[in-house]
């Protein structure tokens, strides 16, 4: 029998892409945090399920003018990216050298990459809070992000994001982020509920 749809990363990726690319608003990324329980400790955990990064063509220019990362920070990001690239390509560097690894890593790219290493235990963090309360959390505006009781939200703000949304869906939480201020939209919430109906094998 086919595996449940939520275990299939291809359909998950397709849902994230459909949501972001089809949205009226400009979202920078979407992440699905998958819930699980550690059998040994009984700890409930939200970990990386999958993510889709859209970014923005103007990210670089925006970053250069408003929030230039220091040279040392850029070097650190490039080094990490080089190592990850080498890990993915098996260290052989592929058939042709990838010069884009040497390009500046924007703040939002870095935020997305760092997200892959994160997890939230027992309702901690913005995704964890949304999951345990079973209620969406929509934070629009840098000032509100700065006040959120969550390190991730504050880091998001420091890296240029202005809106973060966490919506519990099925076996996890869908998180959206944008460098724009985007206010809550019923249309988007409905779209999320339809797209992330995990009882459906079909992508609507």
């Amino acid at each position: 029998p086919p595996a449940p749809a939520y275990f299939n990363q291809e359909t998950l990726q397709q849902r994230l892409l459909t949501l972001i690319e089809g949205a009226r608003e400009t979202w920078t990324y979407a992440i699905f945090w998958q819930s699980s329980v550690d059998v040994a400790s009984g700890v409930s955990l939200l970990g990386w399920g999958d993510g889709y990064y859209k970014g923005c063509e103007e990210d670089k220019r925006k970053q250069k003018t408003t929030n230039p990362a220091t040279a040392a920070e850029q070097e650190h990001r490039k080094r990490v990216l080089r190592e990850l690239n080498s890990l993915i390509s098996g260290g052989a560097g592929g058939s042709s050298p990838d010069e884009t690894v040497e390009e500046e890593v924007t703040d939002t790219e870095w935020f997305f990459l760092v997200s892959m290493t994160q997890s939230f235990v027992n309702g901690a963090g913005l995704p964890g809070q949304a999951f345990f309360a079973d209620a969406p959390n929509w934070i629009a505006g840098a000032d509100r992000l700065a006040l959120a009781p969550c390190d991730r939200a504050r880091q998001a703000r420091e890296l240029g994001l202005q809106t973060m949304v966490c919506v519990p869906v099925g076996t996890g939480v869908l998180e959206l982020g944008s460098t724009d201020v985007i206010y809550q939209s019923l249309e988007l919430m409905n779209k999320i509920r339809v797209l992330f109906n995990f009882n459906s094998f079909e992508i609507p």
């Binding site: 399920g49 670089k60 690239n85 890990l87 993915i88 884009t100």
Partner: peptide, 30 residues
């Protein structure tokens, strides 16, 4: 440590491929 969980590895692979496409389309960085 060189051993990424599969979900993260796939996500990372997609991210790097898409980044390459995006940057190649934008042309050399000024």
């Amino acid at each position: 440590n060189g051993d990424l969980p599969m979900a993260r590895k796939k996500s990372l692979q997609r991210f790097l491929e898409k980044r390459k496409e995006r940057l190649t389309a934008l042309g050399p960085y000024q």
